[in-house]
């Protein structure tokens, strides 16, 4: 028995179907492995940052929680993965789980502080928590290496099978698999009723309560998940660079992340990856000329973007795409 799918169902399904652009996007990352063997380390860094930005997209883009301290979770994951190798846990996947656990627990616990207030106090509490951790890492020199960062991290074989090589081939594939895996999970969550309820909360809390959504529980939940993914991203960076810099916790990293998401587009799932790509390439290029130069243009970009660049790159592309079929109909 075949039935024609009614248009309202097709409309809902549009969000869920893997589009060609999406498939091409991930295949492109695979192609990088073969086509750009000299730039694998940099490409891995972009993926990791994109994953980190995705975690912010979940809590900011989808759930509407404003934060200035998301780097806290990235840093926690990074240090956890690094310190685990020091106590003998050198298998990377175990390291990821450790990082996820620590960052997630911290995210869960702090979510109660963060979610209490409104925007302003959320900003300040997240900022405060981020600075607090930075200061802690700075002071506990014996454990964290202080300003010099955590050095001498020896990472074992992935699952005991694949060794990290000098060219970053294994590292790249490892990062790609983990990023893609977490992306698929995040994507599934956001297209499920769960994701719909988050978008409802972001759109209008008052009404979300009135239709019976337990918003506290839901927000705690997604905040924790965002922390977990950020922690994993941090751990990936540690494992692939075998070093943890103290600025993993820095305000600049949280701010940069917001900017990337803004460039790419919030609540799009891909905005983080696209933004990270554009941001890191531009940063690489501009700051090789002059570091202050980069900061200046970044600032200008922010000022302009808040007024003119609504929706980011992805939003812009979607608008362009939406123009075409409408043109056909008319």
């Amino acid at each position: 028995m075949t039935m024609v799918t009614p248009p309202h169902i097709t409309h809902l399904a549009r969000r869920e179907r893997w589009s060609r652009a999406e498939i091409a996007f991930w295949l492109a990352w695979l192609a990088v492995y073969f086509l750009l063997p000299k730039h694998l380390m940099f490409a891995a860094q972009i993926l990791i940052t994109g994953l980190f930005a995705l975690s912010l997209d979940l809590i900011l883009g989808y759930a509407g929680i404003v934060t200035l301290g998301h780097a806290a979770f990235f840093g926690l994951g990074a240090y956890t993965a690094g310190l685990l190798t020091k106590v003998g846990v050198i298998e990377p996947v175990l390291g990821l789980f450790g990082a996820a656990l620590v960052a997630g627990t911290f995210g869960f616990l702090t979510s109660f502080l963060v979610l209490r207030g409104r925007d302003l106090s959320r900003l300040m509490i997240t900022l405060g928590i981020g600075l607090l951790l930075f200061e802690l890492a700075n002071r506990l020199t014996d454990i964290t290496g202080g300003v010099d960062g955590l050095q001498g991290i020896a990472v074992g074989k992935v699952l005991g099978l694949f060794e990290f090589d000098l060219f970053g081939k294994t590292a790249y594939l490892y990062v790609l698999v983990v990023s893609f895996g977490l992306f698929v999970v995040a994507r599934a969550l956001m297209t499920a009723p769960y994701g719909l309820s988050l978008r409802a909360i972001r759109d209008n809390q008052q009404r979300a309560v009135a239709i019976g959504i337990p918003i506290r529980v839901r927000l705690t939940n997604i905040y924790t998940l965002g922390a977990v993914i950020a922690g994993v991203a941090g751990a990936l960076l540690t494992q692939t660079t075998q070093f943890v810099a103290i600025d993993s916790f820095g305000f600049q990293r949280s701010a940069d992340l917001l900017i990337m998401l803004l460039i790419g587009g919030t609540a799009t799932l891909y905005g983080g990856f696209v933004g990270a790509c554009a941001f890191l390439i531009a940063q690489n290029w501009l700051s090789s000329i002059n570091a202050e130069y980069w900061l200046f243009w970044l600032g200008i970009l922010l000022i302009v973007a808040t007024r003119y660049l609504r929706g980011g790159v992805i939003g812009g592309m979607a608008k362009l795409a939406a123009l075409r079929p409408m043109g056909k109909k008319a």
């Binding site: 200035l68 900003l123 701010a255 917001l258 900061l295 200046f296 600032g299 200008i300 000022i303 808040t306």
Partner: peptide, 16 residues
């Protein structure tokens, strides 16, 4: 969020 991003942008320009 927009206000934060704008003013962070101003800070960056000022620092640079």
């Amino acid at each position: 969020l927009d206000q934060v991003l704008l003013t962070v942008g101003i800070i960056f320009v000022a620092i640079a």
